[in-house]
Nucleic acid binder design. Sequence first.
DNA 1: CACATGACGACCC
DNA 2: AGGGTCGCCATGT
Length: 109
Amino acid sequence: MKPETLSFFDRVYEVAKLIPYGRVTSYGAIAKYLGAARSARMVGYAMNGSSGKDVPAHRVVNRKGLLTGKHHFDGTNLMQQLLESEGVEVVDNQIKNFKQVFWDPSETL
DNA sequence: CACATGACGACCC
DNA sequence: AGGGTCGCCATGT
């Protein structure tokens, strides 16, 4: 493991950590915030390495508010459990009122 | 060392 | 308006 691996990857972690409680954001939003709107894929991939970090990956969903990454968690509906635990309504792996709970990093500016 | 895959999103036809 | 393809960068095989 080379900590020298400075890149979007690490940036994603920092942004993800900034996600407030009871809120969610999308991979593309983070990528765009970093200046790489087309690197949404990297954001999701970065979450893969989020294990062991303080990155609340469960608060990061795709543009549709769909829990696409739930498959990567330990349990099948662990991700949904965490979100609901924070007050986020999730139906059929999709966040309800996504627009309301959606948090944009640009908003923090 | 080179090729294939991956938690998405935008652009092109 | 709908469907298909490319991009992005790092990791794994």
